[in-house]
C-alpha cells in the first residue's frame, strides 16, 4: 500500500477556515486512510501567496491547496459562480446543487480545463453578515454614500446600491472602523466575525448577507499528484472533502446562532434589511451574472445549471418548511 505526505497551501492565518476547513480535512483523510495519507497544512503565505493558492497548486509548489474559488475572478469570473455572490441561491440549495444537482462535476471539469488543477468543494459558509456597522442600515436611503469596506465583485455591485465601497489592507479594517474612517465592513459569517472582534468597535449587525448568501470553499489537488493516485485513493480524498464540507456547513450554522446571541449580549443592535434592499441586491447580482453569461462560455454553463436547479426547487419552501409563524411556538419560557 502506498503512503503519501502532501503539503497544503492555504490563504488562512487561523480561525474556522483553518480549523474546521483545511486542518479538519487533513485529520479526516489521515483517519480514513489509516494514516497512509498525511497532509501538512501551511498558513497563508508560507507556500506561495495567500490569494494565489490556485497558482501554487497548478505549479506544484504545493501538492494541495485550500482557497475560496472567488479569488480567481480576475482571471475567470466563473470562479464567482462557484464561490457565491449576490445572485447566488441560499446555502441549503447550494449544498444540494453541488452534491446532487451536478455542481461538483461541473466544478471539477471547469478547474481542470481552465486552470489545470483538480478542484472540489471543501468547507462552506452559510449566509454572511451583511455589515458590521457603526451606522444603522436598513433601507436603500441608509445605504446612500455609506463608506463600506469590501473586496471582489461586490465592490461594483454595492455601488449600484448607492454605497461608496473602499478597499483597504486587512489589518487596517479594525482601526479604520474604530475611528470612523469607514462606516461598515463585510467580512464572514457571524461566527467568523467574532474572530477579528469587529463587535468591539461597531454598534449594528446588519443581516442577512445579501452580497454573499453562501460561500463554498475549495480543495485543490495538483494534477500530477492526482494522476499518480489509484481510483480508491482518489475516492478517499473526495469522501474526506465531502464529509468535511457537510460538517463545516453545520458547525458554521450552529456557531453563528451562538455568535448572534453574543452580539446581543455585547449590546449591538441586530437590524434586518428591508425586503426592498434584499430584492434589489439579488436583482443586481442576477443582472451582473447574465452579463457574464454573454461574455463567458463557462460562466454561462454554470449559471444555466444553477438556474435549472432553482426552477426545480422553486416551490421547496411549501413542502420543506412550515410557515414562519410556526417557528416561535412553544419557545416562550415565560
Amino acid at each position: 500500500q502506498d503512503t503519501y505526505e502532501w503539503r497544503m497551501a492555504t490563504g488562512w492565518g487561523g480561525g474556522p477556515l483553518m480549523d474546521i476547513g483545511a486542518q479538519a480535512f487533513a485529520d479526516r483523510l489521515e483517519l480514513l486512510s489509516d494514516g497512509r495519507m498525511k497532509v501538512e497544512v501551511f498558513q497563508g503565505g508560507a507556500i506561495g501567496e495567500p490569494l494565489k493558492v490556485t497558482d501554487s497548486v497548478r505549479r506544484g509548489i504545493a501538492d494541495m491547496g485550500h482557497t475560496w474559488p472567488g479569488y480567481d475572478w480576475g482571471r475567470d469570473t466563473t470562479a464567482v459562480a462557484f464561490g457565491g455572490f449576490a445572485g447566488t441561491m441560499d446555502d441549503e440549495r447550494m449544498m444540494h446543487w453541488l452534491y446532487e444537482g451536478g455542481g461538483v462535476e461541473l466544478w471539477k471539469e471547469w478547474r481542470q480545463e481552465e486552470f489545470g488543477v483538480v478542484g472540489m468543494p471543501l468547507f462552506t459558509r452559510t449566509a454572511e453578515t451583511f455589515l458590521n456597522s457603526r451606522k444603522k442600515v436598513q433601507s436603500l436611503e441608509d445605504l446612500e454614500g455609506l463608506k463600506l469596506r469590501t473586496a471582489g465583485a461586490w465592490i461594483d455591485m454595492s455601488k449600484e446600491l448607492g454605497a461608496s465601497p473602499v478597499t483597504t489592507a486587512g489589518d487596517e479594517i479594525y482601526p479604520m472602523l474604530e475611528r470612523g474612517v469607514i462606516d461598515a465592513t463585510e467580512w464572514g459569517t457571524p461566527w467568523e466575525d467574532t474572530y477579528p472582534k469587529f463587535y468591539e468597535v461597531t454598534d449594528y449587525i446588519i443581516v442577512p448577507g445579501v452580497h454573499q448568501p453562501v460561500a463554498p470553499f475549495e480543495l485543490q489537488v495538483n494534477q500530477e499528484v492526482w494522476d499518480s493516485l489509484n481510483e480508491r485513493d482518489r475516492q478517499l480524498i473526495e469522501t474526506a472533502a465531502e464529509l468535511t464540507t457537510l460538517k463545516a456547513w453545520m458547525k458554521v450554522g450552529h456557531e453563528s446562532a451562538a455568535a448572534m446571541k453574543l452580539f446581543e449580549e455585547e449590546g449591538l443592535e441586530i437590524v434586518e434589511l428591508d425586503p426592498e434592499v434584499q430584492v434589489k441586491a439579488r436583482e443586481i447580482g442576477i443582472e451582473w451574472a447574465n452579463k457574464q453569461s454573454q461574455e463567458n462560455e463557462w460562466f454561462d454553463r454554470v449559471w444555466e445549471s444553477q438556474r435549472e436547479f432553482e426552477k426545480l426547487w422553486a416551490d421547496a419552501e411549501s413542502y420543506r418548511r412550515l410557515v414562519p409563524e410556526t417557528r416561535a411556538l412553544g419557545l416562550d419560557t415565560e
Binding site: G45, I47, G48, E49, K52, D55, S56, R59, G60, I61, T168, A169, D171, E172
Partner: peptide
Amino acid sequence: IYGDALIWQFVGRVESLASNYI
C-alpha cells in the same frame, strides 16, 4: 524542496511585495 517550481514561489514573493499598499 521545490525543484523547478521554486521559481513560482519567488515570482509570488515579488508580486506580493511589489503590491503592498502599506
